[in-house]
């Protein structure tokens, strides 16, 4: 399992119990730490999160031999400046902000059982989740069409 797969699976664990959670991920190479930010604050503080939190950390430690996972909230000192994977329940949009993450996470995003459609923009890529599609389509990047559709 690579780190993108680990992050997507961690998101799923959280969303299974907290479907309305806003979850953001960012890696800081300077401190070799994978930050997972949870909003609202009540999710981290909920007693049910203790088991999920430890399950995520235990999985990380079983797979990876260095670095760590750190959960963040709005109260944390560290605030994410450029999260690379976001799951937003309000808009039903998950954003993945770098192409390598998109490619590596693409297969795993099928587990959301959703259409994954991303609009190519100058600064970020947005994946729109739609649960009614079941086929994979990726449009040609050189076609002049700036929209990619990937259904899972």
């Amino acid at each position: 399992m690579n780190i993108q797969q680990f992050v997507i699976e961690s998101f799923e664990k959280i969303k299974n119990l907290f479907p309305h959670a806003l979850i953001e991920y960012q890696y800081d190479e300077d401190v070799d730490t994978h930050y997972i930010k949870l909003s609202p604050l009540g999710i981290y503080e909920d007693d049910s999160f203790v088991d999920i939190g430890w399950a995520i950390k235990d999985t990380y430690n079983e797979i990876f031999d260095s670095g760590d996972v750190c959960f963040l909230t709005d109260k944390s000192l560290i605030q994410l400046t450029a999260p690379t994977i976001i799951s937003d329940p309000e808009t039903n949009i998950a954003s993945v902000n770098d192409i390598e993450t998109i490619i590596e996470a693409g297969e795993l995003l099928r587990r959301f059982d959703t259409l994954v459609e991303f609009d190519w923009k100058e600064s970020e890529t947005v994946i729109v989740l739609d649960s009614f599609q079941s086929n994979l389509e990726v449009s040609d990047i050189n076609s002049g069409n700036d929209k990619y559709a990937m259904a899972a």
């Binding site: 007693d47 203790v50 760590d68 963040l72 560290i78």
Partner: peptide
Amino acid sequence: RRDALDLDTMLNDLKGFRIN
């Protein structure tokens, strides 16, 4: 387990923030 998760969260948050 709850206090341990809080301690882990706080220490890793502080570790990163101290370096920044």
